[in-house]
Design a protein around this nucleic acid. Structure first.
Length: 268
DNA sequence: CTGATAGGC
DNA sequence: GCCTATCAG
């Protein structure tokens, strides 16, 4: 065999090897995601996902989240609420379940027991009523945060209902929700689940390529004020959380939209 | 809608 | 632990 032929064969084998190894790594990663969770999907909500400050993004079939082990809850939960998702179907309320897809171990629901705080959904059960599976999936402990009942059933509930109104009106919106997580927060339970002092919700509508967004920042207490009083710029929420919400958007569009706290394009 | 809790098996 | 009934904002 000529020297050149030998080199060619080695080169080809090397390329095949690299390709095979890459394929192996990809499959390995997918396998972990699939095996670890409760039927999570690896390609859900890929476009508008925010960045993760914790490095642990988990995809479920009907929402995605970034888990903060330090605070034992998600720093964000993101999902698309399409008009077709809106449903009045009643499902029996299931038990909360530890999210096995969170590799560092999601909080146990018992941390909340007798804590005085609600197990407050981040992705609301009311937004995932289109199938039993979608509904049950919101009852994972990675999707909840300690919330005062007056807040949860009060202004926060009003905001969630308004989001459903916008989803219907705009033929779907993209939603990102979470508590403002930081050091030194009050905690509940053996696992020290942090109690946020504020919660945020960022909403994006993309109708025919005309993107608009809206962000809310609320103190963790009930209020009778109108919802528009809580509108802030996305930049404000980014400054508080360190999260980059829509990195996929073209910078010029992203910068302009995220700096604005104007809500004239949204009907309340 | 948003939830917790009591009591039976 | 699971299930049903009841209650509250």
């Amino acid at each position: 065999m000529k020297k050149n032929q030998l080199y060619s064969i080695i080169a080809i084998l090397l390329i095949i090897g690299i390709y095979a190894y890459d394929h192996y790594l990809n499959n390995k990663e997918k396998t972990i995601v699939v095996d670890a969770g409760k039927e999570p999907k690896s390609d859900t909500n890929t476009y508008y996902l925010p960045t993760s400050t914790t490095g642990q993004i988990v995809h479920h079939q009907n929402y995605s989240l970034s888990y903060s082990e330090a605070h034992e809850q998600a720093e964000w939960v993101a999902y698309e609420l399409k008009e077709s998702h809106l449903s009045t179907t009643n499902h029996k309320r299931p038990y909360f379940e530890i999210d096995k897809a969170v590799k560092t171990g999601a909080a146990d629901w018992r941390n909340y027991k007798n804590s005085g705080y609600d197990r407050g959904h981040l992705c609301p059960a009311g937004d995932r009523r289109f199938t039993k599976k979608a509904h049950d999936e919101t009852f994972l402990t990675s999707n909840i945060s300690p919330q005062e009942h007056q807040f949860n059933s009060g202004i926060w509930n009003r905001l969630e209902q308004k989001v459903r109104y916008w989803a219907k009106k705009n033929d779907g919106v993209f939603v990102v929700t979470g508590g403002i997580l930081k050091n030194g927060l009050k905690t509940i339970g053996d696992e020290k689940v942090a109690v946020p002092n504020q919660f945020y919700k960022v909403i994006l509508d993309n109708t025919n390529g005309r993107i608009k967004m809206l962000a809310f920042l609320m103190d963790h207490k009930d209020s009778n004020l109108p919802l528009y009083k809580f509108v802030v710029s996305v930049d404000k929420v980014e400054a508080l959380t360190g999260i980059d919400f829509f990195p996929q958007l073209e910078d010029s569009i992203e910068d302009k939209l995220e700096a604005s706290s104007n809500y004239k394009n949204w009907s309340f």
